[in-house]
Amino acid sequence: MTRPSFDDARLEAPEVQDSPALRWLAETGARIRRATMSEPLGDIDGADRPRGVLVIGQEARLVRAVLEPVCPVPFMAWPGPSLPAWVGPLDLVIILGNHDASPWEVDCAGEAARRGATIIVAAPADSTLGAAASSSATTVVPATDADPMAAAVAVLGLLGQRELGPAFEPEQVADAADLVAGLCSPFHEIGSNPAKDCAIGLAEGLPLVWGGTVLAARASRRIAEAMRRASGRPALAADADELETILRAVTPRDPFEDPYLSDVEAPPVLMLLDEDKVPDRLNGVARRLSNIAESVGVRVCSISSGEPGLESSDVERYVTLLQHGRYAAAYLGIGLNSSS
């Protein structure tokens, strides 16, 4: 695949301030506040601790990444298309959806209600999904915005209050999204805008995204999805071993070659998320990937969720990483003239 034409002047054009993609990103904090401040409909506080927890739907893997290390009962993110046979009245089923929930999610909601399971459903109260999950043991978290992440944060906050997950302040998560929006605002020029700078780094290559922690790995997949949507070209999020295999197969770049005149395939660009916060067992992994990339002339971009010593919750760090990556993807699309 030859390199598309990226024009960094588009990032500074006055009309970029009216970009729908950037406006949607800037409103993330507000959507999180609306989702977390909406009063749940139901009596989840009166329910007993469940025997097990099952989550399905959009952002189920985010909920799993946050809950699995601390949840005091067995937990599973379920890909469908039918409800597991073991789910019954002693279990909690979490369903993350919207007006456009898939038929199998609606079927699972109805089946969970028929089996008498305790249900938390994040969806509009008047949606097909909400109606299917309706029972005396159902709690509805109203999701009025089409933002699965905001709904997931609201559900995670509710689970934290029930001691099924880590406690955190949803307002601080919204503040984290607002902070990224301020740093990556289109009003900031390239020299002071980390997302624009990252987009320029990605302009000539195909993103390979690696996350140093469990949540960073989850964010890496969402960022790769955003890159693909914005640019219309491949982007890969994968484990270190898989990325290392790809990097070792790259033909070393000729330093005397003119990248604008040569008709060669676009090289990869390595994106490292939270490389400074990896667990002890992964010490040196990010360094090894960087060394391999640099040895073959592959550019390396890093995104951090903040200083390691900061007392931020995992959810705050996830949102920070994801928003930085999404802003970079939006500016990449604008520079390629493939998004508005």
Rank of each mutant, 00 (worst) to 15 (best):
E105T: 13
C108F: 00
A109T: 03
A109V: 12
A109D: 09
G110N: 03
E111L: 10
A112H: 03
A112V: 02
A112G: 05
R114D: 06
R115K: 00
G116D: 04
G116N: 11
T118E: 09
I119R: 02
I119S: 01
I120P: 00
V121R: 02
V121K: 01
A122I: 07
A123Q: 01
P124Y: 04
A125N: 08
A131P: 00
A132V: 13
A132M: 09
A133S: 13
A133F: 05
S135L: 14
S135G: 14
A137W: 12
T138I: 06
V140S: 04
V141F: 08
P142T: 08
D147K: 09
M149Q: 11
A151W: 03
A154R: 07
R162N: 05
R162G: 04
L164E: 09
L164R: 08
L164K: 10
P170A: 05
E171W: 11
Q172S: 15
Q172D: 05
Q172L: 15
A174D: 02
A174E: 11
D175K: 01
D175A: 15
L179H: 06
V180D: 01
C184W: 00
S185R: 02
I190W: 01
I190A: 04
G191K: 10
S192W: 09
N193M: 11
P194L: 03
P194T: 01
P194K: 09
K196L: 02
D197M: 13
G201N: 10
L202N: 13
L202T: 08
